[in-house]
Design a protein around this nucleic acid. Structure first.
Lengths: 328, 328
DNA sequence: TTGTAGGCGTTATCAG
DNA sequence: CTGATAACGCCTACAA
């Protein structure tokens, strides 16, 4: 059902129908009524594709996320979608995975779709390859990165201060008498690298001579469980652990319990993200709230402002805070 | 950068450029090379909007979900997105919330966007209003509902047999000596109504005379905690609880522990969904695996087949199974 | 092998 | 107040 079909049946021209559809003034009430009746009768809805072609806008924004199943990415995607839906935009969401190649491919896809703006969720998008893809394919599309930034005229960043956040976690553990700290990491995203940097710097600053211990694992409960066991066997002196994300802390915490450690007296540990995992686990996990939710809300607002032609800060940082629970 | 810009610079017509862009045969190698060079130089990417207009397809599918932050919906959305991205489709995702009005509005939006197909995730879409909206706005668009169904020519359903699933949960509790069962429900979706029906039927079948107890709460840890306390105070004889979703079981389980009940000896309980909550909680929760992941995968495959012009079963059911853990 | 013309469904600009 | 007409960017006969 097109505007022409309606026009023919109403005995008017397409332009008149268009005027009615768009609520423009200057249509005779009687013709207007006649047309509206037909519109309703056929449940006419304008073809946004055609509209977009002539209006040079499609009210679509792209959302890139490594994997929406990660809780904080889920929240981010939700926040962004909700914010834009309210404004009549729709979000096309892609799970890029962690591979560089896929990320750049999806950037290309977004450019073909001519999205008006994009949000990339996660520091994993703060890479050279993404930067180049943006330069090539979307040099003029406003892009906001959640917890990341690229030095490009059309890219904006809202960041968490995870480096100092982790420093404060170290301080917390230290203040409770824990001196032999370890860090368990899941992957080397820019965000996690900052966390490790914050960890190592603060440990050094506090004057602990012992070399810092950093272990790797994949992002699973089981992986965290195993690597924690391994850590405690190889470094029995460790009495405080910072996990790069809550999920690891949950899995690792179980290992500590199974090994018979008293938590938090003998070994204390923390997660990062202050996600539902921290709240759900037993014992409930002390976690660094890096405000990822606020970050996404801010990102959405930034992009909305940019699309509205407003000026926006290129780069902001949101301060994190510790939520203490039962593991410290 | 349009096909015309390229054509002008190459000294050819737009159609020739179009042929090269679409890899059609019958272009002289030298002109082809010349054009390809320009294409690369300007990082030309075809405007999908314009393409969609003439090809009468935009390779977009709509995904409706009440709230993507619910874990199984997240998984569903992920599965669907991944399946379609592989085929060059993009997914526009909307969080509809639970209000009827919003659901029908988003159906209208999808129709304006002229999506080629849609997936609705959750039994909450199995309502009269959604049905009418589909009839009005998308009577010819293939739609697959995950865990729901509507009797419409263009609607397909992949369902979980939660009714018999819950019956088997009742049987499990019964077989372990629990006779006084209660059901704690979060909201009255078609899916949950089936669960309650399965619960009540099976209790009756097993010859328990005592009236069945069904309590309500909102979908939060805290709500489940409170309502479980209330339940045990008002019905101290209860020794088995089925929670409509794992999240409730997690919150309720903590209440039972706090009240000093031995789990599962004194009181046993189960969740439904076999989600990460069941695995995370302490004790780990026995849960009904209603195969929501398979459901989404199947839904995606169905829709892919439909878009490819294939025939697909209108309605299938996937059998659920119990995953026993520490609470039974 | 290449170009021309028409059309996809809308909107915008002019005339009338 | 209304109707042609030309665009938007692309694709596809058909003609050359």
């Amino acid at each position: 059902m097109t505007i022409y079909d309606i026009a023919k049946e109403a005995g008017v021209s397409a332009s008149t129908v268009s005027r009615v559809v768009n609520n423009k003034s200057g249509v005779h009430p009687s013709t207007k009524a006649k047309i509206e009746k037909l519109l309703k009768k056929y449940h006419y809805s304008p073809n946004e594709t055609a509209r977009g072609l002539i209006k040079q806008n499609n009210h679509m924004i792209g959302v890139l996320v490594a994997d929406i199943r990660n809780v904080h990415y889920t929240d981010g995607a939700y926040t962004v979608e909700k914010a834009f839906a309210k404004l009549g935009y729709c979000c096309i969401i892609f799970n890029t995975g962690s591979e560089t190649k896929e990320k750049t491919e999806y950037i290309q896809v977004l450019s073909q779709r001519r999205v008006e703006g994009a949000v990339m969720i996660g520091s994993t998008f703060q890479t050279k390859d993404v930067e180049e893809a943006i330069i090539q394919y979307m040099p003029n599309t406003p892009i906001v990165i959640v917890n990341g930034y690229l030095e490009l005229p059309n890219v904006y960043g809202v960041l968490a201060d995870e480096r100092t956040g982790v420093s404060s976690l170290v301080n917390l553990l230290f203040s409770k008498g824990h001196r032999h700290l370890a860090f368990i990491n899941n992957c080397y995203t820019p965000s996690n690298l900052l966390k490790i940097k914050g960890f190592e710097e603060e440990v050094k600053k506090l004057g602990v001579e012992q070399p810092t211990v950093v272990y790797d694992t994949d992002t699973t409960l089981e992986g965290a469980y195993q690597v924690t066991k391994q850590l405690m066997e190889e470094h029995p002196e460790v009495d405080g652990i910072i996990y790069s994300v809550d999920l690891l802390a949950s899995g690792g915490g179980r290992a500590l319990l199974d090994m018979g450690y008293a938590v938090p007296e003998q070994v204390a540990y923390t997660g990062i993200d202050n996600s539902i995992y921290a709240e759900f686990s037993t014992p409930k996990i002390t976690s660094l709230d890096n405000k990822l939710l606020e970050l996404s809300m801010m990102a959405a607002r930034f992009l909305v402002d940019l699309l509205g032609g407003g000026k926006v800060t290129k780069k902001v940082m949101v301060f994190s805070s510790i939520v203490e629970r039962e593991t410290t």
